[in-house]
């Protein structure tokens, strides 16, 4: 990569302090450090990943509205959590978390348990019990 070929396709990084330091060759073939704000290829890959996560979320939303799954299942997917990871953060067992992904078990949750789950997911209890 030449110095003038370093991509500057800002889209995601611009608003944060995070930058990409790239190495590129100058006209003598010596390497130089150039700071870049992103590259389209990478942005496409990231966008695609998030889009597909949101698409799957919409499908789960429908299942929640039909009364099959619980809002917990929706939030787990939206926050790219898995029962394993949430179990680590919240202290509940994986089995319990999988059970609570179904609406009929979710409604039986106590207030304290909901608070503990919401805290581990870093959202409020109101959010956890709704589809926000």
């Amino acid at each position: 990569m030449k110095v003038n070929e370093v991509p500057q396709d800002g889209k995601i990084l611009e608003s944060s302090g995070v930058r990409d330091v790239c190495y590129a060759t100058d006209e003598n073939g010596d390497y130089k450090q150039i700071i870049s704000v992103g590259w389209d290829a990478k942005n496409v890959a990231l966008d695609f990943t998030w889009e597909s996560i949101y698409e799957e979320c919409e499908e789960i939303k429908k299942e929640v509205l039909s009364g099959e799954k619980s809002p917990l299942a929706y939030h787990l997917h939206r926050l790219i959590m898995t029962p394993e990871i949430l179990s680590d953060y919240s202290g509940f067992s994986k089995r319990d978390i999988r059970r609570w992904c179904k609406a009929k078990h979710f409604v039986k949750l106590q207030k304290e348990q909901l608070e503990q789950l919401a805290c581990a997911l870093r959202i409020s209890v109101e959010q956890l019990t709704s589809l926000d």
Binding site: A41, A45, F48, T49
Partner: peptide, 12 residues
């Protein structure tokens, strides 16, 4: 495509 996206992300 998701797998490919993961590789591009890891790559870049």
């Amino acid at each position: 495509a998701l797998n490919l996206a993961q590789i591009v992300r890891m790559n870049e």
